[in-house]
Design a protein around this nucleic acid. Structure first.
Length: 288
DNA sequence: AGGGCAACCTGGGGGC
DNA sequence: TGCCCCCAGGTTGCCC
């Protein structure tokens, strides 16, 4: 469940179900589910068993839970990862990758991931620019929901990029949490084509597209995120409702809700981009 | 240094 | 029905 709103929905669910609990067992059913943990899977399991979960946090699309010993279990859902809280007697999901049980004997945590692009890892907590993060996340920029998100500074950095506006919005080292859906939605809201050079945005346009991204993600979060199918669900397996509110993403051939023109789909970065040809005109080629 | 692209996977859907 | 090709909310690593 990739983008910020969907990950935040999971974070809230994990916070409710995990804080204060002590891990009693960890079962890894697929080797790719434990990633980037150099000491290996056995070390990961050994360090996790007996540990107490003290907090569940998120930056962008990464989420993690802090352990009492100053380390953190970092999770990324990739393209298809789910975190499910399930009764112990519930049948295993087809793509169950990791099962974590707790000393209280209550519901277990299951990491389910069809495409195995997601995974768990264990890191030391470090302080970066005044915020405590797992060390593997230190390169990820603050997301728009972060109280210390500095929109003026990010707008300035966005305008310094010599690349297309959408590519910059998707760069997690510039602003985190924005993915393919919400980038298209933000660009539609402010009437900018995805290929507009970032360094030719006005100060106001740069600020406005970041504001639009913030707002569309906040709206999505309020209704549980965007779900097109059962792959994107909260910890209880429930889908969000924002897909019905999308204005651009996935609407090829359907009328723009602002001007009625048919939404266009184009290939971009080995994926799809959706825009309104009238509200978001293609930029003229760059002059030099 | 920073941008761009292939690679990492599984499964669903459409066309033939 | 089956096969094949295309598509999918992401990130990393390596090339230039």
């Amino acid at each position: 469940m990739p983008e910020l709103p969907e990950v935040e929905v999971v974070r809230v669910g994990l916070e409710e179900h995990l804080v204060g609990r002590v891990v009693s067992s960890v079962e890894v059913l697929h080797p790719r589910a434990i990633r980037r943990h150099v000491p290996g899977e056995a070390d990961f399991v050994g360090r996790l068993v007996g540990s107490k979960i003290t907090a569940v946090r998120r930056r962008g699309k990464y989420l993690w839970w802090e352990l009492a010993d100053g380390t953190a279990v970092l999770a990324h859902l990739g393209m298809s990862g789910q975190m499910l809280i399930q009764p112990q007697n519930e049948a295993d999901e087809k793509h169950l990758r990791v099962r974590i049980e707790f000393a209280d004997g209550g519901p277990e945590l299951r990491f389910v991931d069809q495409r195995t692009f997601g995974g768990l890892s264990l890191w030391d907590l470090v302080e970066v620019d005044g915020t405590v993060l797992p060390s593997a996340v230190s390169h990820i920029a603050r997301d728009p929901m972060d109280p210390l998100f500095d929109i003026a500074a990010v707008a300035r950095a966005l305008r310094a990029r010599r690349t297309e506006a959408k590519r910059a919005l998707l760069d997690q080292t510039l602003v985190s949490g924005v993915g393919n859906i919400y980038a298209d939605e933000a660009l539609w809201r402010v009437g900018l084509h995805w290929a507009r050079p970032a360094d030719r945005l006005t100060v106001a346009q740069a600020r406005d597209v970041l504001t639009a991204a913030t707002e569309v993600m906040a709206e999505a979060l309020r209704v549980g995120g965007t779900s097109f199918d059962a792959l994107y669900v909260n910890v209880n397996g429930e889908s969000g409702y924002f897909s019905r509110s999308l204005d651009a993403y996935g609407r090829e051939g359907e009328p723009c809700r602002r001007c009625g023109s048919a939404i266009v789909r184009e290939a971009f970065m080995n994926r799809s981009s959706f825009h309104c040809p009238r509200c978001q005109p293609k930029p003229r080629s760059r002059r030099r």
